[in-house]
């Protein structure tokens, strides 16, 4: 039971990252929440390359993971790592699965809980509509200027034990595109996601949200 809860918690975190990043990329360049909501309404699909840098005290240089993610409105997500371990998270129509390359090939990872899926779906609904300020898990601050940023701070004590804050940096010269997402933990540990090759409203094959390979 405890193991299942931990799996759920880990997957919740994974999906929060995935969904946050996918939705964050959809954000338009803006100085007000109204601008963000207006830009969000225009987004139907997003695909991008990502690089994930894990900075920790135990490492002298960050552990870098790379991959690609896809989002199709209203709620389909594919979050795929190509290195150092091949791993694919797929969410479609309320169903969430994770596959990881192991000794038996690309197999489904230990399953998470329904509760986690419900929370994630709620987050998607809010973020895709640009409703950061009405989020029950995070309080949001928007900072405009040359490099607009959204800072999310956990409201719950349990979540704040895992994440101290999240900083989403928007692209200054390309509305709708973000430069990076930084998730800060504690003791200098943080994860930085940087996005390149961001394509908005391009055609994404529906198979990507159904098939792993």
């Amino acid at each position: 039971m405890e193991s299942m809860m931990a799996e759920g918690r880990a997957k919740k975190y994974a999906f929060i990252i995935g969904i946050l990043c996918s939705c964050a990329v959809m954000l338009g360049w803006a100085n007000t929440w109204e601008d963000i909501q207006r830009e969000s309404a225009k987004i139907q699909s997003v695909s991008a390359q990502f690089s994930q840098q894990k900075h920790m005290q135990i490492l002298t240089k960050p552990l870098v993971s790379k991959g690609r993610f896809y989002f199709q409105a209203p709620d389909s997500v594919r979050w795929e790592y190509s290195s150092p371990i091949k791993s694919v998270l797929i969410m479609q129509k309320g169903s969430i699965k994770r596959y990881t390359q192991g000794s038996r090939g690309l197999v489904e990872d230990a399953s998470g809980s329904l509760e986690t899926m419900q929370i994630v779906l709620q987050e998607i609904g809010r973020w895709t509509r640009g409703q950061f300020t009405e989020n029950e898990h995070f309080s949001a601050t928007l900072k405009g200027g040359k490099s607009p940023r959204i800072i999310l701070t956990p409201k719950e004590k349990g979540l704040s034990a895992m994440i101290s804050r999240i900083v989403i940096t928007l692209s200054p010269d390309r509305p709708g595109v973000i430069k990076s997402v930084k998730i800060l933990e504690n003791e200098g540990n943080y994860t930085l996601f940087e996005f390149t090759d961001v394509q908005i409203n391009g055609k994404i094959s529906e198979k990507l949200f159904r098939e792993v390979g």
């Binding site: 931990a6 880990a10 975190y13 994974a14 990252i17 995935g18 994930q52 894990k54 920790m56 135990i58 993971s65 790592y81 371990i85 791993s87 990881t100 895992m162 998730i183 933990e185 540990n189 994860t191």
Partner: peptide, 15 residues
């Protein structure tokens, strides 16, 4: 020994 376990997504589970 210093040991850390984390998820593929970078979530620190054990340090």
């Amino acid at each position: 020994i210093h040991s850390v376990i984390m998820t593929i997504e970078g979530f620190l589970l054990f340090d």
